[in-house]
């Protein structure tokens, strides 16, 4: 392929881009662990004081709890709906397959902020006003369904249907077949779909910005408000938690389905 000299150049360029990709993330973690009020050179030493400040901030802990509750609800809903939909589409899609695939992934393709606006106005039109938790759950589920759908579909397409036929042939009812054969074998895909849904909801900003109200503030909105007025590293702690979660998720997904199944555009 490439000779040594050529490889060195490519590797150097690639290393720089990776550094660019990871820089802001590493910086957030450093800021959270930094003793001073903001990052400076040379650093002022390590400390957990900002973690303590975060834990003592009522507004941060309350919105963290709210975010976790919201993400858990949206994850359960979108995982169930998305998995069922991908089962149907892969198996029985027929002529509607393409249309429905577009519909199911459309929330990813349109601007989240406009979906938020459309939902906000729609809820008002229905006379629901700001619906608080319910409205946020709807909005987040909408955004999470595509991820679950795409990931479980990737696994289902590879699934050998003759296994299900074998089970039926041996006397298993459709339900027993699903529980004893299908589910154990697509479990990895469903779990990674759920994990992606959880992270997506936990980090979702656009929908939340428009649909959250007083007392219903997910963490990203809390951070957004905070960052408008202050840069102090309490926000970095929230960021570090989110980063830790992302790392766990990536490693889990790699184990469960292999990240390469996330390639877009074929391959």
């Amino acid at each position: 392929m490439l000779r040594r000299g050529e490889r060195v150049w490519l590797n150097a360029a690639v290393a720089l881009v990776y550094a660019f990709l990871l820089a802001p993330i590493v910086i957030v973690v450093l800021a959270a662990l930094n003793a001073g009020a903001y990052l400076r050179f040379p650093p002022e030493g390590l400390s957990l004081r900002w973690f303590v400040a975060f834990a003592q901030s009522r507004s941060f802990t309350r919105s963290l709890a709210f975010s976790l509750k919201l993400a858990a609800t949206a994850t359960v809903l979108s995982t169930v709906l998305g998995t069922m939909a991908s089962l149907w589409l892969v198996r029985f899609g027929g002529r509607l397959r393409t249309t429905l695939r577009i519909l199911l992934t459309a929330p990813l393709a349109v601007p989240g902020i406009l979906t938020g606006i459309a939902l906000l106005i729609f809820f008002y039109a229905l006379g629901w006003g700001k619906t608080g938790f319910g409205g946020l759950v709807i909005g987040h589920t909408l955004i999470c369904i595509p991820y679950v759908f795409l990931i479980t579909s990737a696994v289902l397409v590879r699934f050998d249907q003759s296994l299900e036929e074998a089970a039926r042939n041996l006397g298993a009812s459709p339900f027993a077949t699903f529980r004893r054969v299908t589910l154990p074998l697509i479990k990895g895909g469903v779990i990674s779909g759920a994990i992606f849904a959880f992270v997506t909801s936990y980090d979702e900003f656009n929908i939340s910005l428009l649909l959250s109200g007083v007392g219903n503030t997910p963490l990203p909105i809390q951070l957004f408000d905070y960052l408008r007025f202050s840069f102090d590293p309490t926000a970095a702690v929230a960021g570090t938690i989110s980063i830790a979660m992302a790392v766990v998720v990536v490693l889990l997904t790699q184990r469960l389905v292999g990240l390469e199944s996330l390639y877009m555009g074929g391959g």
Binding site: I25, I27, Y38, L223, L227, G239, L251
Partner: peptide
């Protein structure tokens, strides 16, 4: 390498933006 590519995707946009703010501010790094 896929882990390195995908990880940033899973960190909230807001947090990555915050990281950039720390780096890019007038008083930033």
């Amino acid at each position: 390498l896929m882990v390195l590519v995908i990880s940033p995707l899973l960190v909230g946009v807001l947090i990555r933006t915050y990281g950039w703010m720390i780096l890019l501010q007038d008083t930033g790094l």
